[in-house]
């Protein structure tokens, strides 16, 4: 929609052209969220379209580097490519996660991976991907030196992230060690191609057999549990209870907190069983 409150738009060639920051500025990535609702507190859009960061860099030994500006369409297409290292067992998760978004392929043509993370929605399926595959986010603050945070730490609540004012998400690095793990995936949505009410991903390390269980969409922020050996049903339930307080379950028009909790407790054992 037309953003009536926007009075200026700038197209810097590099991020460093933007030195000072003030409320009312916003980075414009794909714009698919920014243009989808009125933005009464913004006045200036800073276009990221000229940064020309290489979208995807895959190296068998180190892993996958995804630029924040990589579009979901590019990532999805890459997820279907055949030339990836055979050892990357978790690779199919890329397409599965893209397809877990409510948005259509037309939106993927513009929407970016970074935009999905920075928006910090519980149903951000690329957040699920980044967290499950133990990603690291590289952040470019306005005033300081670049820093990194784990994808698990990046989103702190519903539409809340660790980003400071003006700070950019530059890239997400998925380590090869995580890409080599065996994946298991469960998702529930009230509509067939709709928004996730719960999205759970498990991975199993081929070396240590450790299982990592990542819970998203059902909770206000991603939750990750680590099991050296497959837990029994009771231990698993207890771990879930301990890790996710009742208030940490998310409630919105796409699902209630109690149903989401129920789904998490239903899917988690299935994932453990599949990976055990």
């Amino acid at each position: 929609m037309d953003l009536h409150h926007i009075t200026a738009q700038q197209s810097p060639q590099t991020p460093d052209e933007v030195q000072t920051w003030e409320p009312g500025l916003a980075w414009l990535a794909g714009g698919t969220w920014l243009f989808s609702e009125p933005q009464p507190v913004l006045h200036t859009l800073l276009d990221m379209g000229n940064f020309n960061w290489p979208s995807l860099q895959a190296v068998e030994e180190t892993g996958l580097e995804i630029a924040a500006t990589c579009t979901i369409a590019q990532l999805h297409a890459f997820g279907g490519s055949t030339g990836v290292p055979a050892s990357w067992q978790a690779f199919p998760l890329i397409q599965t996660c893209c397809e877990s978004l409510q948005s259509s392929f037309k939106i993927w043509n513009e929407a970016t991976v970074g935009g999905n993370l920075c928006l910090g929605l519980p149903a951000g399926a690329l957040i699920s991907l980044a967290v499950a595959l133990e990603g690291t986010c590289v952040l470019w603050p306005r005033q300081d030196l670049p820093r990194s945070v784990s994808a698990l730490e990046f989103v702190t609540g519903v539409q809340q992230t660790v980003l400071r004012p003006g700070e950019l998400l530059r890239s997400i690095h998925l380590p090869a060690s995580a890409l080599r793990k065996q994946p298991a995936f469960r998702r529930f949505s009230q509509t067939q191609e709709g928004r996730s009410s719960a999205l759970l991903i498990g991975t199993r390390c081929p070396v240590t057999a450790e299982i990592l269980l990542t819970i998203t969409a059902a909770t206000v922020r991603p939750v990750q549990l680590r099991f050296a050996t497959p837990p029994g049903a009771r231990d698993l339930a207890a771990s879930l209870e301990a890790a996710i307080l009742p208030t940490a379950y998310f409630s919105d028009p796409h699902g209630t907190a109690d149903h989401r909790r129920h789904l998490v407790h239903y899917f988690a054992p299935q994932i453990i069983e599949e990976l055990a």
Binding site: V18, Q19, R170
Partner: peptide
């Protein structure tokens, strides 16, 4: 990873496209 970012350049006026 992010070699020598400089934050010294002001926003060039050419970047304004109103």
């Amino acid at each position: 990873m992010v070699p020598g970012l400089s934050y010294s350049r002001p926003l060039s006026s050419a970047a304004l496209s109103r």
